[in-house]
Nucleic acid binder design. Structure first.
Lengths: 261, 261
DNA sequence: GCCCCTGCCTATGTATACATTTCCTGCGGT
DNA sequence: ACCGCAGGAAATGTATACATAGGCAGGGGC
């Protein structure tokens, strides 16, 4: 049964904020502000970032700014040159595709380990809950979908699989893969909001969710891994569509502003 | 044909120094010193690290020390508590096994992509060179092995596969996975130096190297991935041996000092 | 006797002054 | 006209002083 307190649209789709939550206050807000500006395309890919300029722009001193820059470097949004500061990262379409592929590979490993090692009764219950919650996001009609509810449920599902793998190392690695904004499981949901074909494709995505859960419960490791990998290909398909057919969507998908050529 | 300038034992097995090469001077040496001390077991797992104490210990000010701490956090050797500094990371045997498994999964993905996408003539030549160089590390007798030459060739091989995947994203993920000292492809080589059975097991490992290369050249993606994963299991087997049968080796494998319980 | 509150102490967070390196520019020579 | 060297401006690297918050201990009250 689905949780009855299922919120509908209480939050917009949020991309992973990384581990910045634990940073000091000024550093944290600086990292958030800078991240939003970079992901939003406020800087050109490859543009040099100088500390003094950024510090002035953000109204803080260089010390917390450097923490923020280090965090953003961890996330892959900026790159440090040998000794001369940072530049905004540049990605190709192939990079984005590979990042999604890697997220699929790693989440596939999480699903496989959960299946191979087995999950307890509580884990099975939580899995059912999330799946029901996702089902509840679909309305009676073919195009009926509460996008916010789906996005929330989708994030929960992908995080739950990580939990079920019961491996801090897997979590660490997957979270690193997801840190690139366009590699997040919900990266393309916001851009798809108004595209009917995409909304319908989420019916198939939900079927994959159920197949993954079934495989985990049945301890079918290979199946769990394979379906989870295929599940990530949905994002690659969407990427292809955004880049080749509907470039106007580019600025609605987080991080695509950094894609060049 | 192997390169004739093959060095024999010019360097000890070095674990990946991460991306710290590009850090500022004091920060870099501080990171290196601290890393060596942590990996070497100078601190107890879970021990709190205070900035002033470490700064005094290393003879630098807190500013570059904080850069070093951030780097070590990236590498997973220390963890930051919500607002109160850092503690030395604690790992379980399962964590180490999972880290090796993940390295195998990701290197397997690199091998698969190299196979699927194909490599050029130069890539094939470099592959042959490295394999011949590895062969040359073995002497005529069953136990004959130039361990330093093997370690160097092994590192080259694993790095070459990354190159052949031709994917910066794959490289990024694999390097992150290898950053944990015990997850490096050569982590257990040093500890095995004097164990005859281990030295012989490297004959099988070299056969796997050849199989992986063959699969990449033949564009057999599934085979390349599967063999590379299995290849990583060698390290897991060695881990098992070190932890259960020959604990005296623990302190010779980098990072194992941080394993508790 | 136990719990809570308060105050101090020590830790990290921040700002800024200073050192050092690097890159760019301009001038001179070839 | 082009190459090279030198000088200066501006960047990052470092140290330190100060701000602030959090934790621990001690004392007082219930």
């Amino acid at each position: 049964m689905a949780t009855t307190d299922a919120p509908s649209g209480e939050t917009l789709i949020m991309h992973d904020r990384g581990a910045a939550d634990r940073l000091p206050l000024q550093s944290q807000s600086a990292a958030m502000a800078l991240r939003d500006q970079i992901v939003g395309g406020a800087f050109a890919p490859g543009e040099r970032l100088t500390e003094v300029r950024l510090a002035a722009r953000l109204g803080i001193s260089r010390t917390p700014l450097r923490s923020a820059l280090a965090e953003l470097e961890r996330e892959g949004l900026i790159e440090r040159l040998s000794t001369t500061g940072f530049v905004v990262a540049r990605f190709t379409a192939a990079d984005v595709a590979d990042a999604i592929e890697l997220r699929g590979v790693l989440e596939g490993t999480a699903a496989r380990l959960a299946a191979e090692r087995g999950i307890d009764a509580d884990g099975a219950r939580r899995l059912d809950e999330v799946l029901d919650r996702l089902d509840a996001a679909f309305g009676p009609g073919p195009g009926d979908l509460d996008m916010d509810a789906y996005a929330a449920g989708n994030a929960l599902f992908h995080d739950l699989v990580l939990d079920l793998s019961a491996s801090p190392m897997v979590r660490r690695q997957v979270e690193h893969a997801r840190r690139l904004p366009f590699a997040s499981p919900s990266a393309f949901l916001e851009g798809q909001r108004d595209v009917a074909a995409f909304r319908r494709s989420l019916v198939a995505a939900q079927a994959q969710h159920r197949a993954i859960a079934e495989a985990i419960l049945g301890r079918e490791g290979a199946r769990a891994e394979a379906v989870m990998r295929e599940h990530a290909r949905v994002a690659r398909t969407n990427l292809q569509h955004v880049l080749t057919r509907d470039p106007s969507l580019r600025r609605r998908v987080p991080g695509l502003a950094l894609v060049v050529a």
